[in-house]
C-alpha cells in the first residue's frame, strides 16, 4: 500500500496534548478562595529557592508500581486497551515462541521495537505474553509525556511509563530504569528515540543497549509493522488497519562490548525481523547471513525519493 508523504510539521495537537490542556484549563477556572484556604502569596523581596521541577525526568513514578495501581492497570490493559487495540489495530503476533523459555518473573527483558506511531505501545503491550504484560514498564519521552502532572499521572498509571530523555543518557533516568530492571521489571524502550517521521527506521540510539549492558538484561528485538497506517506521526486520525508484531530471539548483552555496537546489532536484528515479516524466516536468515538484509533506514536521498522508495518496498 503506497503511503502519501506527510510533511513533518505538527498540524494538530495529539489527543494526549488536548486532554492535558483541557485539564489545565478547568483547574485554572476554579475561583480562588482567600488564604489560608488557598496557597499564600510569596512575599516580594524574599528570594525564591530554585524550584526543582517534579515533572519531566524528575517525575516520580514509584506509586504507579504499587499493587493498587498495578491492579487498575491490569484491568485497564485487559478490559479496555485490548479490545481497543483489537478494534483499531488487530495484530498478528509472530515469534512468541522465541520468548517461551524465559521466566519473566525472575528474568526481565528489554523490549526494543521500532517506533512509528502512538499506537505502538498499545499494540505491543496488548500483544505481550500474559506473564510479561503485567510486569513491563514503558520508557516514555520525558518532554512529551511528562510535561504536566495530569498527563504524567495518566501515563504512569495506564502504561507504567517512566520518563526518560529522548536522545541522551540522563544519569538519573537511566539509573531509575536500571534499578527497575534489577528489581525484575521488564522495560519497553524505543531505541529510535521517537516516532519515524517518514516511515523509514531511524538510527537506533544506545539507550536500550546501555541499559542491557549495565544490568545484564537481554534485549528482545521487535519489529512492529503496520502501526503507521493506523496513526502516523503528525496525524490525528485513526484508521483501522491490521498490524504485525514479530518478536526476535532475546539477545544477551554478554556478546557485545559497547553500547553503540550493541545498538547497531539490535537494529540489524530488527531489520532481519522486518525481512522475516515481509518474506519468510528462512530467506531472511539467508539474506542476513549474506549481509543483504534490506535496509530499514531507506536511501540517502531527498525526502520525496525516500517516500517513493517506501511506497515501493511496502508490499
Amino acid at each position: 500500500m503506497p503511503k502519501t508523504s506527510e510533511p513533518d510539521i505538527p498540524k494538530t495537537p495529539s489527543a494526549a496534548q488536548q486532554l492535558g490542556k483541557a485539564f489545565a484549563k478547568s483547574a485554572a477556572m476554579a475561583v480562588r478562595p482567600p488564604f489560608p484556604l488557598s496557597k499564600p502569596n510569596w512575599p516580594n523581596g524574599v528570594a525564591r529557592p530554585e524550584e526543582v521541577s517534579r515533572l519531566g525526568v524528575n517525575y516520580d513514578t514509584e506509586w504507579s508500581r504499587s499493587y493498587p495501581a498495578r491492579i487498575v492497570r491490569a484491568a485497564f490493559l485487559d478490559w479496555l486497551s485490548k479490545p481497543v487495540a483489537r478494534a483499531i489495530a488487530p495484530a498478528t503476533v509472530l515469534g512468541e515462541d522465541r520468548l517461551a523459555g524465559l521466566d519473566f518473573a525472575t528474568n526481565p527483558v528489554i523490549l526494543a521495537p521500532n517506533h512509528a506511531s502512538h499506537v505502538d505501545t498499545l499494540v505491543l503491550l496488548t500483544s505481550l505474553p500474559e506473564q510479561l504484560r503485567h510486569r513491563t514498564i514503558v520508557a516514555a519521552a520525558a518532554d512529551y509525556f511528562f510535561d504536566t502532572r495530569v498527563k504524567s499521572a495518566l501515563w504512569a498509571l495506564t502504561t507504567a511509563a517512566i520518563p526518560i530523555e529522548r536522545n541522551k543518557v540522563n544519569r538519573r533516568s537511566a539509573q531509575v530504569a536500571a534499578d527497575l530492571l534489577n528489581e525484575g521489571w521488564s522495560l519497553l524502550i524505543y531505541p529510535e528515540g521517537g516516532r519515524t517521521p517518514d516511515g523509514w527506521i531511524q538510527k537506533f540510539s544506545g539507550g536500550a543497549a546501555y541499559l542491557s549492558l549495565k544490568t545484564g538484561t537481554p534485549v528482545v528485538p521487535i519489529y512492529l509493522k503496520g502501526t503507521r497506517s493506523v496513526m502516523a506521526k503528525g496525524s490525528s486520525k485513526i484508521r483501522q488497519s491490521p498490524t504485525t508484531v514479530i518478536f526476535g530471539n532475546p539477545m544477551p548483552p554478554a556478546a557485545h562490548e559497547d553500547a553503540r555496537k550493541f545498538a547497531s546489532a539490535i537494529e540489524d536484528e530488527v531489520a532481519k525481523l522486518a525481512d522475516e515479516a515481509e518474506n519468510d524466516w528462512w530467506s531472511a536468515t539467508l539474506r542476513a547471513a549474506k549481509g543483504t538484509t534490506p535496509s530499514l533506514a531507506g536511501p540517502d536521498a531527498p525526502a520525496w525519493r525516500r517516500t517513493w522508495e517506501l511506497g515501493r518496498s511496502a508490499k
Binding site: L94, G95, D97, E276, D280, W281, W282, S283
Partner: peptide
Amino acid sequence: LGDRVYDSFAP
C-alpha cells in the same frame, strides 16, 4: 516445526 520454518518452506 514452528510457524517460521513452515512459512519459509511450505509455500
